[in-house]
Design a protein around this nucleic acid. Sequence first.
RNA 1: GGAGGAGUGGCAGAGUGGCCGAAUGCGGCGGUCUUGAAAACCGUUGACCUUUAACGAGGUCCGUGGGUUCGAAUCCUACCUCCUCCGCCA
Length: 425
Amino acid sequence: MLDIRFVRENMDKIAEMLECRHSFVDMNALKELDSRRRKLIVEVEDLKAKKNTMSREIGILKKEGKDADDRILEMKRTGEEIKTLEEGLAGIENDFFAILKTIPNMFHPSVPIGKDESSNEFYHDWGKKPEFSFEPQAHWDLGEALDIIDFERAAKISGARFVVMKGAGARLERALISFMLDTHIAHGYLEILPPFIVNSNSMYGTGQLPKFEEDLFKLCGDRDFYLIPTAEVPVTNLHSGEVLNGDQLPVAYAAFTPCFRSEAGSYGKDTRGLIRQHQFNKVELVKLAHPENSYEELDKLRDDAERILQLLGLHYRTVVLCSGDLGFSAAKTYDLEVWVPSQNTYREISSCSNFEDFQARRAGIRFIDERKKKRFVHTINGSGLAVGRTVVAILENYQNEDGSVTVPDVLIPYMGGLKKIEQGS
RNA sequence: GGAGGAGUGGCAGAGUGGCCGAAUGCGGCGGUCUUGAAAACCGUUGACCUUUAACGAGGUCCGUGGGUUCGAAUCCUACCUCCUCCGCCA
């Protein structure tokens, strides 16, 4: 959520931002609601002041044993007046905040302007595309032949977009999780294992609600529970409603969780394979930073995510998302895209964003600055990495002609010494 | 799942219908004293919102929401969280 004052004073900047993001918000309605809201607040508060004075007077009169019936009558009338005005105010505030909450974040000046992913800006790349003396297979063919990935049985027990990992496949997934976490911890992140179910309040805090409910799995029953679509939700909200000491910043967390996404609206996209699943594993990096150096912290976080790809020896490129491709809450986002040989293209494997104070304002995460003022922190997060897609990259980039897959060196200790995944391993 | 108990300022803890935003203690901050410090003593010490050019003025907040009342931290109600006991269970 943007600051109300900022919105009031920068209507034209917001209009421009909305255009660059190709989204629409009825700013005139918002402006109108804002002025009506403030006018009503003044009226209500005047009446309340009157009520408070009268109430005090009645107290004194009663204590002195005097009659206060006419005052009491007037109070009754004032009370009703207040009630009516407050009902109107509540309605206006509802509408006002409903609109305010749907305004996406302002983006950083360095973000390229463009309408979709084709305008994303190349930032840098690392490594080289592997060369094969044979036609590289898709990971689903490799995985099924090696009997380490089972889509059919997953479909039987759950449905489409689920997977069963077996044997060396399951172990590879677990090895990657441990390897990623160990690497991040060594670089100063605190490991967190959060709940995989959160309440709607947390979803509001990070911006999944109210706009993107259809992307989430909501649990049945009378409790308002959702399966997390990313560890960003529980981990960022760890400090919701808190005031941190400035010298605690930056706070850096690394969390492994499964992630659950309904993938509504992506029918027909990536229907085969591990790329797009309703449930996938991810190691997430989350930082709460001082506004003054949040972009440096974003760069460092991106480097930390890239380090995993480098250690795994996977070729990738990094792009800066353009205004039209940027997520709702993000001010700036780098996507890391790993090379997928069978598709002859790069696929997103991590998304690292600075949300500035957008999430912090919603979630109420503040800190005390050098001048002892309370300010909102900047929140930053990024995948480090999406584990399922890392499995895709490893299987495809490390495949051999005979259908076996070489285990990247750094993972061998995590695989119990296994150097090559072969049939029956 | 059953039976009880509790949620008040940074913390501890009083307050059971009206000068209560809230006693008191601790902590924090400022000062006196001291070569310096401690102790002692004195003073001070919440957040948010509206309004104002500013000084200031006003409003809201005692777990959360609703209700009773002229008036609620205090009464009623639902919910949430925590604690104790019993049952069940990884």
